[in-house]
Design a protein around this nucleic acid. Structure first.
Lengths: 190, 190
DNA sequence: CTTGGATGAGTGAGTGGTTGCTCATTTATT
DNA sequence: AATAAATGAGCAACCACTCACTCATCCAAG
């Protein structure tokens, strides 16, 4: 290898893609992404052979980033409710700070360019969350429901909560919504 | 008017669009939609001046169709729980029968081509549902939460439930999931 | 430590294909 | 006869991706 690819450039491309997609949807031109990343359009294709590859990588990166935030300060020895609450609030706190990423994630999630493999790989990335979720399934009303229901239900309720948090005027109101949302989720699965 | 536009043709275009978008996303060519509808591409533009107009109309149509199914057999004099249960199960029953419409709706909902006006108009279309929702807000834990929270929470929990219903092998399993999902929702808001 | 050849990252004008939309013309309805 | 819907070839704009070329970096010979 004469000249290594720069991870910074890769990151710049992914970040630029996240921003542009949030603004203009998955149809954004690769030229726009490259310009925002501060590189030539050709360079984009040395990092990602096709646009679909870029989108799949972006999906993975955003998911991973989310799980990373959740893992920070995870109360490994806390009660099930404490751990669930941590996942609930730390994920929401992360998304509040990056609304563009949330909108991009929403587009990618429902898009047909994201392969089943990519989705599976993303799910495999959750470490502590996975254990919490299976415990939730075992020890609550979700017992007789399919595996994975807890995860989907939680995420969907978080998204519902986030819809209103983004409109809330003050930090206090946002915090109140986070707690109200969690209370509803906890009630739902008890 | 020398020759009236045919409502059947309009419907055919909207249906074709729903199918094609479910398969290939919002980027589908208008030519493909027209072909599927059995008309010339030019004709599409006599019914919808731009592709964005078509997409907004499709969004409205799908929403309206959903509300129509909910209104059928609505237990006007039932208890709050009965009416909520009706909205829950009749919406889900409708979507089960048209998975393509669901996927298309998911794409449209997160898309930036759907205007705020269109979204507002769609919400205004719910008649009985609206009354049920405001009653839910008044008489449950949602009391201190923003207006509209009930609606968003319900829809998101329905979507979560639907994710698993589509994978369930038998009618009985599907029915079981519908009830389990409703039970969770009802617990969430009590 | 210097140097130069090998490698592959970086570039951006260029390409073939596709897109949303137009418009001259034909056809159906009033 | 008058009018507007229906048609589909055609068009300008745009797209993802290529490629001939430049240049930064690595490593081995001296």
């Amino acid at each position: 290898m004469a000249r290594p690819k720069s991870p910074e450039k890769r990151d710049a491309i992914l970040n630029a893609a996240a921003e542009e997609i949030a603004d203009a949807g998955l149809g954004v031109a690769t030229a726009r992404i490259a310009r925002r990343a501060g590189i030539a359009e050709g360079t984009l294709f040395t990092y990602f052979p096709t646009k679909d590859d870029l989108l799949n990588a972006l999906y993975l990166e955003l998911k991973k980033e989310g799980y990373l935030h959740i893992d920070q300060g995870f109360p490994l020895k806390g009660s099930l409710e404490q751990r669930t609450h941590h996942v609930w609030s730390s994920y929401i706190a992360w998304v509040i700070d990056s609304p563009a990423k949330r909108r991009t994630m929403a587009q990618l999630t429902v898009s047909e360019v994201i392969t089943a493999e990519t989705r599976a790989e993303a799910s495999a990335g959750r470490v502590e969350v996975e254990r919490m979720l299976s415990e939730l399934t075992e020890r609550t009303t979700l017992r007789n429901l399919p595996k994975g229901f807890a995860a989907v239900l939680m995420l969907s309720m978080q998204e519902a909560t986030l819809d209103f948090i983004s409109k809330a005027p003050t930090k206090a109101k946002k915090q109140q919504l986070i707690e109200a949302g969690f209370a509803a989720f906890w009630r739902a699965i008890r």
